[in-house]
Design a protein around this nucleic acid. Sequence first.
DNA 1: AGGGTTATATACCGGTCGTTATGAAAACCG
DNA 2: CGGTTTTCATAACGACCGGTATATAACCCT
Lengths: 203, 203
Amino acid sequence: MKTAACTVAKGRPREFDVEEALAAALRIFWTKGYEGASLTDLTEAMGVTRPSLYAAFGNKESLFCKALELYEREKLCYIGRALDAPTARGVAEALLRGALERQRDSSDPKGCMGVINSVACGAEAESIREEVLKRGESAKRAIVARFERAKAEGDLPDHVDPEGLTGYLIALLQGIALQGGAGATCADLERLVQTSLSMWPAR
Amino acid sequence: MKTAACTVAKGRPREFDVEEALAAALRIFWTKGYEGASLTDLTEAMGVTRPSLYAAFGNKESLFCKALELYEREKLCYIGRALDAPTARGVAEALLRGALERQRDSSDPKGCMGVINSVACGAEAESIREEVLKRGESAKRAIVARFERAKAEGDLPDHVDPEGLTGYLIALLQGIALQGGAGATCADLERLVQTSLSMWPAR
DNA sequence: AGGGTTATATACCGGTCGTTATGAAAACCG
DNA sequence: CGGTTTTCATAACGACCGGTATATAACCCT
């Protein structure tokens, strides 16, 4: 009933930090993908034995979902902020630069956790794929809504299609993550972003 | 020494068509990725037993490489044709429309074989990943060269960066494949392409 | 017909996968 | 101190992985 208000804990205390272990698991899923990440990879990176992992996180799938939440919360927060930009062009620029900055951060794995895990692999990962796609879809809807608002505000010409513009922008973001994960240099990605911005109409 | 000029064959003839079996294998790798495709998946789709597969194709990795060659030869031929377009804009339009058409073909799997297998999975697939990336890189260089030619011909303004423009265009192509593989409708992708074309400067 | 050669079919190999049963260890309570 | 509860460590489970040993069947040649 209570919200588990930390009642001093009864049994033997756990010897690892759940949040740290989750961050370690995220790095593994991020670099190897859901199916490519074995439990051995995960437990070694997390510094935790198998039974402890299952006791703390349920199973591999729910561990992945918790790691995905952490990823969105910590690594994709620039998306929400980008939508607050005053103009449509500002939104696009903030998204592109945010994606670029993510690839530039040398302390994190390359590529995008979402992109990596949205491509089909084995059949067992279908529910994972759907979970990832669901979140991507909701992000897309938020951008579409933002561009529709921009259109209503006269910030975008009447002839533009918010859906099309969103798909276009997301394609660029996906391309940045993909090329970053494929080993493109920072200079490559900066050129990509620069070119993208030079293409945007209201320069 | 000879180019294996079909010397009537000596032993028991094989009971399956190598090219057909390879096409079936391609579909599996295309939908499931290299690691997601098990030998059971492959042999069932190809209608071939395991020893026959190994006798005809070597092992899983070399089977994948042969399937990748088939993929490029039959499904990515639009890229080479696109580079023959007279203008840079014509090249971009042919590439975008070619990628769109590939996703529209309902008889083939969605997504792009190259994109699917270039994202990191297990460590065993590293050589596969490198092979795929190598081919992508050579395609990129061909597009860069084409845009440099366009610039020399006065077809592109002096201030454009061929590398940046190529990365930008490839990002769009990757986005099309990714969104197509993620379940986007044909209408979605058409809007994406339409928007991309409307962005291209020399309308 | 019979040897040589190549493809087929069945069954199996060691290894790894995700998951869990078992029992000891460490904290709390009384 | 014993009793309870939770975590830790070891080891094992069945299922599947990529790859192969073995034996049989179908073709050519002489």
